[in-house]
Design a protein around this nucleic acid. Structure first.
Lengths: 337, 337
DNA sequence: TCCTCCTTTTGAACCGTTTCAATCAAAATT
DNA sequence: AATTTTGATTGAAACGGTTCAAAAGGAGGA
């Protein structure tokens, strides 16, 4: 037997197709009696509305896209999980794609998602040192509902939800200074990318405020935001600078830093304080629990989803960046006064 | 101006709607000249096919669903990433949902996905101690394309791709025995769930083969497969059993085991060898790098996707479980001979 | 020039919903 | 009893593609 359609239901229930449709949508125009009747037939036939026909009529798929750099950094996995919950709350589904920190790949996935009929899109910006953002501009030109999460592309500071990153490194640095450290460095990526820029800003503000000299070579630019990146950064600068405090741009990188220091026989935190960023779940369970900055993931995600749905539903929203408060987790890897 | 449809393209190109459709699909029935012409108009108008109308006609959304317990265990994040790549290869998109190890939540998400018109579904089974599998049976009854990944529900050993889990713990245990350990335990979850059962089997086989007595209380049943679960398991049994080797069911749990042992002043691996399972990326970069079993994630995922597409395309496939080889990573946390 | 065959194009049916103006029936009002 | 109002239902158009039998066009052969 062929597929069961709304026609079959209508026929068996002895009403018109239109009525069945309205009954299924619980429209007040249909009498309770008819609704019951229709529902009974639906049950009996095991009928299920065809999502494609429905989408065509409603021009909505009730699904949204999500683009992240990848899950090698568990932080993004935690974000994905929180985001899925937030989306599910709204009875929508989440498609995801991995950009690998390449805007080219990002553009490809955007195109693919558009071919799937997503209603909106949430993007964690790629840390691409040579970004091509034409696809983003294109979306924006068409008023496609788009929200950035955890950061934004420098030229495009619209509809973004992120943590107050500057605040996190400010507190971290201040804590280290209070603990008597004076030669603190920060390991970041390409400072033209906002998440890095903001963290560096906070770091600088703390030094300035405390009268500790800030200069350019306290900012170490690493190209990989990974364990290996942290490892390599130490090899590159430790012997020369001999820092007593190190702030890494994320937890995985901080672990790389600690790993390399230990293997050189340098003690953490006795000789050098190390702090990370993100508070991924394994950070607290390291042998030397990591001092780090917690981003309010669940809150960020629900905020981003709310923002996205405002855009989808055409409600007017002020452009701009919503910043949510971070909270510093003082643990063993760093001395903070 | 309204939405650009295929009609607009047809009008401007001076051909029929049918021809435009065929041109877009690169059908051999359309002349090269016409194709070029149509494409030019498409370009000019910035036309894009409506995915909903297309899906309705083709009865396919070119997207598939993926259900995982969650991303707290980074292993699942790595699987999600690999799966996304495998699916993208086929020019499809991936929807994902988090089951939280609850078959009830799993059922809810399956229902939601069905309402989105997915073409097929890949599920990592939930470790639900009291599973309700009616939704799975329902899918199977309707011949809905469904593939299980990393394990399967005991009553439903169909279309599954997983690693040869027994083999991993077999080798792990054998290695420990060869290193002279004799009092080895394994920490698992509910043994009615296949992934646990298989790992226990391999463990047992190794003991049997080497003439080391196996008995029930060498299998510790923990209820959380988390860091905390590993921690608690040590509190529960260490003092009584005094094992010299411990195999945990996954890496995160193994880290919990190590964390608790260390805090009790017990040295790893000098006093106790500890091994994990999965080889998540942070395992190799722990202060004591973890001996563990690598699952061939990329291979499993591409295999699962191939299997799923066979089902979707109606190719006939033998039922059953495909097992892929694991490889043991001998690192510092365990003595293996 | 006429006929045949092959390639291209057309046009309408179809996919399965939603929506809404028009109709119908029953209840309320005069 | 006739008229108006209210409430429930109908039927057809719309959504925007794909597909395929039939028609048209063009090339080649007799």
């Amino acid at each position: 037997m062929g597929k069961i359609t709304i026609k079959d239901v209508a026929a068996l229930a002895g009403v018109s197709v239109g009525t069945v449709s309205m009954a299924l949508n619980d429209s007040p125009k249909v009498s309770t009696k008819t609704k019951k009747n229709v529902m009974a037939v639906v049950q009996k036939l095991g009928y299920r509305r065809d999502p494609y026909a429905r989408s065509l009529s409603l021009s909505s798929s009730r699904s949204i896209g999500f683009l992240a750099p990848g899950f090698r950094n568990p932080f993004f996995g935690e974000v994905a999980e929180a985001l899925q919950f937030a989306v599910e709350e709204k009875n929508n589904s989440l498609m995801f794609g991995i950009t690998n920190d390449s805007t080219k790949q990002e553009a490809k996935l955007v195109d693919q998602f558009l071919d799937r009929g997503i209603d909106g899109l949430i993007i964690i910006p790629s840390e691409d040192s040579n970004p091509d953002l034409s696809h983003i501009r294109n979306l924006l030109n068409h008023d496609f509902p788009l929200v950035f999460l955890t950061g934004y592309y420098p030229e495009i500071p619209f509809h973004t939800v992120m943590a107050d990153l500057a605040d996190g490194s400010y507190e971290l640095a201040k804590g280290m200074i209070n603990a008597g450290l004076r030669n603190i460095i920060i390991i970041a990526g390409n400072p033209s990318l906002t998440p890095f820029r903001e963290r560096i800003e906070g770091f600088r503000r703390a030094l300035d405020e405390c009268g500790v000299a800030f200069d350019e070579n306290k900012v170490i630019i690493s190209d990989g935001m990974s364990y290996e990146g942290g490892y390599a950064a130490i090899d590159k600068v430790y012997d020369e600078i001999r820092p007593d405090g190190i702030i890494a741009i994320n937890d995985v990188m901080a672990m790389g830093v600690i790993g390399r220091l230990r293997s050189k026989g340098i003690r953490v935190p006795e000789d050098v304080s190390v702090a990370g960023y993100d508070d991924i779940s394994i950070s607290s369970i390291q042998e030397t629990p990591l001092t780090t900055v917690e981003q309010p993931i669940a809150l960020m995600c629900s905020e981003a989803v709310d923002m996205l749905f405002s855009l989808i539903e055409g409600r007017i929203i002020a452009d701009g960046v919503v910043r949510l408060p971070v909270s510093v987790k003082h643990r063993r890897s760093a001395k903070t006064g």
